[in-house]
Design a protein around this nucleic acid. Structure first.
Lengths: 217, 217
DNA sequence: ACATAAAATTAGTCTTAACTAATTTTATGT
DNA sequence: ACATAAAATTAGTTAAGACTAATTTTATGT
């Protein structure tokens, strides 16, 4: 169907299109794929001919309906494989992305749907990103972070934005995982530090940056 | 580590080396990979330079110890994925080979071992072929075929040699799978056709070629 | 042994998708 | 507005790995 490269471009363009009000330029794509803008210009021509994208110098690159549909399916495969690697094969959070980058290109028509079923139709991947359904519908992404809460609010940890091992180790030290209940006691107005209670235990103070990387529902 | 093509050549050469007293020639490799002998000659040069194979016009192609080790690991990955596809995702016998051809190239160092563990360390793949262990040891392959039996013998299907979809679909039509009990009623001396009973049901006649592709124990 | 067929090899071409270097176009700061 | 910086584009190159066509080497049958 598509070459490896074509799929990577589609996925990259899709990912960039998720940033609101962001103009998708050749350089932006080049940076996200870590290759040369000249190469990107070539591929833009190719994908335009295949009617998967449209390119307007003023507006940048946009996925066509067909391109969008297929980009979403690639993302779907990526995120399903991430769930598989973490839940079934026991990989850690920070190991799964690169392997899923390879697995997402396996081309069998029914594979994603079978995997989806096998995994119990998960709605979110281990990074908290929504897994597109077979029909292309995408579950509502988490958007509220710990830092968005008002004093007195209680929430549960749904996902994390930052997946660096230093962050994950810090989480572990604080005994925070998916599903952990957190109550916001106070927001320090000086630097927006957050005073929280973790699972009803004693109080802890964390930084604004920390709070912005925890997605809650 | 290796390119897709290199891995496919290694695997192909390994498969051919399993046939006893078979000289692995450029044409033989070309046929098995369905490409041109001229291309094979190029790749023989490349793999020889990388010291993965040795080529002697008289003796044909041979894997070096390093080439053999890595070819076996590719086969290991292929067969483990086949087990996964059949047992976990519910694919049929004749659907799994092509998908495993893609999955086997996923390059993460611990993936095969994790998958092996997840699957419960299976010894044979759904085609009955032995799955090489992580250390390269290979369980004893089946060797007796249906065509080797004497009249009156009863056996169980352990594996198949031919994995073409036409053969596998024929098996499905005859209701033969791994574990199926077969009794040899008669060998037609004219053309060595075999009259058999499948799972105690009514008699069927199959060709010698068919019988030679069913491994039993 | 020799003609012929088959296999192996060489030489050169093609495609994909990357690259660099050079040039043109667009944006930005003073 | 204009100089300069940044971005986009073009042209040409490279590498892998396939191909065809032509040639050489090896095998086979009579």
């Amino acid at each position: 169907m598509y070459t490896l490269s074509e799929e990577n471009y589609l996925k990259s363009i899709y990912r960039l299109s998720q940033q609101p009000n962001f103009k998708i330029t050749p350089t932006a794509i080049a940076e996200s794929l870590k290759n040369n803008p000249a190469s990107v210009v070539d591929m833009i021509r190719k994908l335009t001919e295949k009617q998967l994208i449209e390119y307007d110098k003023k507006k940048g690159v946009k996925l066509t309906p067909v391109g969008l549909k297929d980009a979403v399916l690639i993302v779907r495969r990526h995120r399903l494989w991430e769930v598989f690697l973490l839940e079934k094969l026991g990989y850690h959070w920070d190991e799964i992305h690169d392997i899923a980058e390879e697995l997402e290109h396996i081309s069998d028509a029914t594979l994603a749907d079978r995997l989806d079923k096998f995994l119990g139709f998960p709605e979110y991947d281990p990074h908290g990103d929504p897994i597109p359904k077979a029909n292309g519908k995408i579950p509502k992404p988490y958007s509220v972070t710990l830092a968005d809460l008002k004093t007195g609010d209680t929430c549960r940890v749904a996902a994390v934005k930052d997946t660096s091992s230093s962050f994950l180790q810090y989480l572990q030290k604080l005994d925070i995982g998916i599903g952990t209940s957190i109550k916001l006691l106070e927001k320090i107005s000086y630097d927006n530090s957050l005073v929280i209670t973790i699972n009803g235990k004693e109080n802890t103070t964390v930084s604004q940056k920390f709070g912005e990387n925890i997605l809650v529902d």
